[in-house]
């Protein structure tokens, strides 16, 4: 993936190979490729997902991530429908990709 003058290696599906190369600009570019224009609500999820990954060394399954959303972002946002609206089709995969995290292996 070309970002300005830098080339950022990704795998075939578009996940960053080196998580340290992630930046807000990289996130925007990946999102655009997925047909998503990042809003404040998207960023809230991306930031949370990254901090959960940092904190626990693990990307949780959707059900558990929603529980965490509910705790940290408030109950009205802790819903799978909310996540699905922001990241259609496969929310955890898309959110992880945009957040520069590895593809969730246990995605359900």
């Amino acid at each position: 993936m070309q970002l300005g003058r830098t080339f950022i290696p990704t795998d075939r599906e578009g996940y960053l190979k080196d998580l340290n190369q992630w930046s807000n600009e990289a996130a925007e570019k990946i999102a655009a490729r997925e047909g998503i224009l990042l809003t404040e609500c998207h960023w809230e999820i991306i930031t949370l997902l990254r901090s959960v990954h940092q904190e626990y060394g693990h990307t949780p399954i959707t059900r558990v991530f929603i529980k965490i959303m509910s705790k940290r972002l408030g109950k009205e946002k802790g819903k799978s429908l909310y996540l699905l609206k922001l990241f259609p089709d496969s929310p955890m995969r898309k959110a992880c990709k945009i957040a520069g995290l590895p593809k969730p292996t246990n995605c359900m």
């Binding site: 904190e55 626990y56 060394g57 693990h58 949780p60 399954i61 558990v64 529980k67 965490i68």
Partner: peptide
């Protein structure tokens, strides 16, 4: 770091 996840699950 992952240990507190047990409770989340």
């Amino acid at each position: 770091l992952t240990l507190p996840m047990l409770d989340m699950y």
